[in-house]
Design a protein around this nucleic acid. Structure first.
Lengths: 162, 162
DNA sequence: CCTTAATCGGATAATTAATATCCGGATAAA
DNA sequence: TTTATCCGGATATTAATTATCCGATTAAGG
């Protein structure tokens, strides 16, 4: 069970975007350089974030990406769902309907108990991600950061805009 | 993020094994037939369960697999860890150390806040799986099952032993 | 002792998912 | 018009999952 790398990238990037002056955006190339990730692939991830309404894009010269909502209105679950899609991690293949003792379709109105159990755990997982906002992650990161580090980033970002 | 199919198979199989007479085991071929899953691959999954101490194997003629503990002493987390291994789903690649504003290794004593947030959600997920025993899943399945279905399975299993 | 039925574990192949790149088109600023 | 940027489709590469095969070992039963 692996979470896509794009989730890590997207989350870090979303913690950086609020450092921008209002109305401006950061290009994919700048973001890719900031975190040393492949630009063409990152571009795909940013498009997923945009379709999910987490970031918005400005096309053309001087364009780029910026947050579409405030960090407090973005949860980690939003990011996971944007990058990985909505399908649950546990895939029930209904093997209870297989084999010599398999149940008939009509006897399977209720979900399989095994699938239910894993589904419930996954619901709890998603609730935990839903309860964690980007804002709270940023706040924690700012508190723990080496003094001046956030300012360094903000300055570097500013320089890229010119 | 996908959970291996083997987790589904293993869980269903572990709910069947307690139907065996004490001291007997079911062969991989019989188990594979019961659920219509590929026998050679299932064999690998059963070996993983054995190494995790969830089932025990008896080699040679008349041998097979049986539970190594009571269903109440086996949790869904045990099965997931046995099949998927212990590594967490979220992989932190320390991208905070990358790029022009990257932190130095020595400034990264604490875990990254992004990784911590996802790690905490995963801890909650695992706790949920740990709280769910095979016994409780079996109990629920028995209550919801079509009357006589468990007996059908038990009878079919008996027949295979002969 | 020999045959049969079973697991064990290593090697390997096939399939699918994740990661990554490229390019032509659209858009907007200068 | 040129330049910088996102958009989306196509495609390639790499890794993970799924699957198979086979020789070795073990144990039961005649």
């Amino acid at each position: 069970m692996q979470i896509a790398k794009g989730v890590e990238w997207a989350t870090h990037i979303c913690t950086i975007l609020p450092l921008l002056p209002p109305g401006r955006g950061l290009s994919v190339d700048v973001l890719a350089e900031l975190f040393e990730v492949p630009s063409a692939y990152l571009s795909k991830q940013m498009q997923l974030l945009r379709r999910a309404g987490i970031v918005e894009s400005v096309r053309g010269k001087g364009g780029g990406y910026r947050l579409a909502r405030t960090p407090d209105e973005i949860t980690l679950l939003d990011i996971v769902l944007a990058i990985e899609g909505p399908s649950p991690a546990f895939r029930c293949t209904e093997i209870r309907q297989n084999g010599p003792c398999g149940l008939k379709r009509t006897d399977c109105k209720r979900p399989c108990e095994v699938a239910s159990a894993f589904g419930e755990a996954e619901r709890i997982y998603r609730d935990a991600l839903k309860a964690r906002t980007l804002g709270s992650v940023m706040q924690e990161a700012t508190m723990n950061a080496k003094p001046g580090h956030m300012i360094d980033i903000a300055n570097w970002v500013q320089k890229q805009l010119a």
